[in-house]
Design a protein around this nucleic acid. Structure first.
Lengths: 197, 197, 197, 197
DNA sequence: GATGAATGAGCATTCATTCAT
DNA sequence: AATGAATGAATGCTCATTCAT
């Protein structure tokens, strides 16, 4: 009983992530997840309603970690201005996704917009753990601190996040319209234009 | 035999569109499509490989029509500059999607990025019908004509399209971060900034 | 719950045998087998990969029983020579097939040669149950015991078995080229010639 | 219209044989046969009732040709005795099947016993073309000519043919119980024993 | 909590056959 | 005679879900 000591729930989550990224959500059966997690099929239903719940939990957790890690790193730096910090965070996330394209594919392919929005909101809005603010709070605080004029901060942040996520998917994975390294300067230039009016 | 005069293929397409938008692609069976189109189940397979082919054909056709109509309208106007024309086209598309949110949902929910990109490329690149250029050609020509300086037109257009499509989905359907009418000016402002350097 | 006490697997096997012999394998659907066995369709797949697996299992079991029973009977007799014992076993099998022509048809019609050979080999080679040797072992042992000269016992036995099985099918079922009772003496005469050189 | 001059019927037969031997009868559809024969699907039904009729015709023709060729060859030789001639014919057929194992597989795999019997009967009984007697007639005539004593010629011939066909299938294709070249002498030895009493 | 045998709804897909042209 | 669009019956198979243990 020493082996497989991780809780059944986390074993299910890890197994599901491996299978989802390897074979896609649709082609992974609950049977497979349970088998590979060394857990009875019925046990799956003790923790998750169905395949799609476990997928959503995974997207939520993975995205949250991605943003929080980037945010924490940014706090170790000293920025003289908010825009720099925002771009630092974005750059950090992008770099992680470049290194972990499997994660990028999984998050992008499976985010029904509802989940994605909730996720983002939770990630950059809520500071439910420790003392980390979300990126949204950071943005608001930063605006006040640096006395920047932004008409509608929510809409602005929204626009930035949507722009980043939708363009990076293609640029990283398909180098379309150009490889991510060449695309980055233009992207960051655009973000600066959006923030600094 | 007067009823159902439309070709079986178009009846299948129309029926599929109705069912897809009402119940989603996943929850629509081929049986249902065939039944509602008053056509044998085998006949479906005469025209389409599977459910996903008919879905892709629908997305392709609907998107194409959307862009082409907007483009044609734009040609009736007189613009003194390219950016205005681009924004006119975008505004026209957005207005149509506001009126037809079912279409917006269908296109957004079901576009695997591959299909979407192909679709867009075909739509705004190829001039396979009449003498209409695609939006991409328009953009390139306009840049030359108006002697605008744009470093990488492809990347720029890509950024615009991604920005528009991802933000409008939420703004139109969920009024997040704000209703589309309030969001429009900011969006168009950002687009101007992206084009005009 | 007293009815249908036999295990689901054996109920499936019995039902399949009934349907296969009545309607043929090709015209029996898995649905039918499951329905008649009072078992869910999915349950079928719990025990068998497909229709052909259940068919092969049936052939294997039925043939095995046929040979083993005949072999056991032969051991109750006292034979002064090996050929007599072999012919006794063959005669015993033939007599059973005369009485059970449905079984004869089923086995003959459905034996892909591969299966048949495996079956036979398993049946007359392996002594996996009790202390019964297979007919092959019996043959080898008998050759040594009675000091009979047989150049290649494997080929000889093979020839006998093929001869018996292919001729009896027609003789029993169609009385071609003559009824089995008239054919038997010639057949046994030939077998004696093959063994005794 | 010069291409494909062979009659549609023979084109269908040739195509079916190619497909049947490559993919098996079950996995060949009428559509495929018609397509590859450059013939409309409906045309198939003008010439054959279904897939199994075309298969039976093929088996019949191929087997007939096999025996007739061997028989004709035997007539070019001078035999001092019937047994030698019979064995010559059998050897000739076997040699052809060794060279054309695809044909061997096709004939064996697909001969429902009914077809096989009819085929054989037609082949070695009936002299429907030219002046060639069948093998059966040859056998009867030979018995009279050479004044050989054979109690029941029909049963004897039947036994020989069954023995040859069932053993050779395994020996040629699977070298079981031994390769055909090693098996031949024993087989012919056995045949001699069966004929010469 | 944990299990996995049992279930059967649900679906895609194939294909022989028909028949109007 | 020749065709091939249209058909829909037939079937294999998967898999989420239940529930008795």
């Amino acid at each position: 009983m020493k082996a497989n000591e991780a809780s059944k729930e986390s074993r299910l989550l890890e197994t599901a992530y491996k299978l989802f990224t390897r074979k896609g959500v649709k082609d992974t059966s609950i049977q497979e997840i349970a088998d590979n997690a060394d857990v009875g099929k019925g046990t799956f239903y003790l923790y998750f309603k169905d395949k799609y719940e476990i997928r959503d939990v995974l997207i939520y957790r993975k995205s949250k970690k991605l943003f929080n890690d980037a945010y924490k790193e940014s706090k170790k730096q000293n920025f003289s201005n908010l825009t720099d910090q925002i771009i630092f965070i974005i750059d950090s996330v992008i770099n992680k996704l470049i290194k972990n394209q499997v994660l990028l594919k999984f998050i992008s392919k499976n985010l029904s917009w509802g989940v994605f929005n909730d996720t983002l909101k939770n990630v950059y809005t809520i500071s439910n753990e420790e003392d980390t603010d979300g990126i949204y709070d950071l943005f608001i605080k930063g605006i006040n601190e640096y006395k920047i004029k932004v008409e509608n901060p929510k809409a602005t942040l929204f626009m930035i996040i949507e722009l980043v996520s939708s363009t990076c998917y293609n640029s990283i994975l398909y180098e379309e319209p150009e490889p991510i390294d060449e695309f980055k300067p233009k992207l960051y230039g655009t973000i600066r234009k959006i923030i600094d009016e």
